[in-house]
């Protein structure tokens, strides 16, 4: 039995344009099927509109699939819970609480039987791990984007969830700050070995952080094209990554996929791209371990 199973998910939304009849729907993604191993960092990349954030919301329990289901350790996910903490693109920190209290609120909810002192110590530990020391008493409004997302990450990690869901966590953070916080996330993940599912647009970020990268074709009616194994040894830092030949190969492969996927989508309506057409076989210069998921 796998740890987290995304089992043949399809999501449709009712069609709302003016010519639509009642009951008309459009498919965001179809038949997405993959598994995440315990302790694995899996990232999903795709163009806007491929439904990757919707997929993350379904795993979180905020949204329900139209077909298929999400199974975590043998139990189907139906509603949000502390075992699947989300780090939001918009940070979603409570502006009336200090950085410390934002984290403490989560710890308190996760451990209702703990003493005040123990909750405080636990919170402080994660505040320190995220290099937030000195900013504890500040309210989110007075923190930079990078610092805010550090609080968001500390809040999520402090709960020690079974799965950590990162929804484009660094999209609203400037490029230079992003580099620092990404490396901190790598270190944090190395210490805690949480299972992580991340959604992003950023190919470099995905390669730096992930064990495997799932590529989605363009939406609507998107499908999972392939899952790329990132065969670069850990610990990784941005400086060691740049010199790694694997890094360049993987990066080129993903960029080729994204660029070609966009072209195909433009000419055919975006439903014809399959894993065979976009896989490594069509690009002989690249030799990758590619896990074909569409069996």
């Amino acid at each position: 039995m796998s740890f987290l199973s995304i089992d043949h998910l399809t999501k449709t939304f009712p069609l709302l344009d003016e010519n639509a009849r009642r009951g008309d729907t459009f498919v965001v993604f179809r038949n997405v099927n993959f598994e995440i191993r315990r302790g694995e960092f899996l990232t999903m990349i795709g163009h806007s509109g491929c439904g990757k954030s919707t997929l993350l919301n379904i795993i979180a329990g905020f949204d329900r699939p139209s077909e298929g289901g999400v199974i975590l350790e043998g139990t189907e996910v139906t509603k949000p819970g502390l075992d699947r903490m989300v780090v939001f693109q918009s940070f979603a920190l409570m502006p009336w609480l200090t950085a410390f209290d934002n984290v403490r609120l989560a710890v308190r909810q996760a451990h209702r039987d703990w003493s005040k002192e123990r909750i405080r110590e636990w919170t402080q530990k994660y505040i320190n791990m995220m290099n937030l020391h000195g900013a504890e008493k500040k309210h989110p409004t007075f923190l930079s984007g990078g610092m805010r997302q550090r609080v968001g990450l500390a809040r999520a990690f402090a709960v020690e969830p079974k799965v950590l869901l990162l929804d484009e966590p660094f999209a609203q953070i400037d490029a230079l700050t992003r580099l620092g916080i990404q490396e901190e996330l790598v270190r944090m993940w190395g210490e805690t070995r949480n299972t992580v599912f991340m959604v992003t647009h950023d190919v470099d970020e995905a390669i730096l952080l992930s064990d495997r990268i799932a590529l989605m074709t363009n939406g609507p009616d998107a499908e999972l094209a392939e899952i790329v194994e990132v065969s670069i040894p850990r610990p990784r830092t941005r400086s060691t990554l740049i010199d790694s030949p694997d890094y360049i190969r993987i990066r080129n492969h993903i960029l080729h996929f994204l660029v070609r996927g966009a072209k195909k989508a433009h000419h055919t309506g975006g439903v014809e791209v399959t894993s065979e057409q976009t896989g490594a076989s069509s690009e002989p210069a690249i030799s990758l371990e590619v896990a074909q998921t569409q069996t």
Binding site: A60, K79, A92, M94
Partner: peptide, 14 residues
Amino acid sequence: IRKDYLHVATLLEM
């Protein structure tokens, strides 16, 4: 109220 805050409340099983 911003939906984010309510999402966090649900997430934390309040």
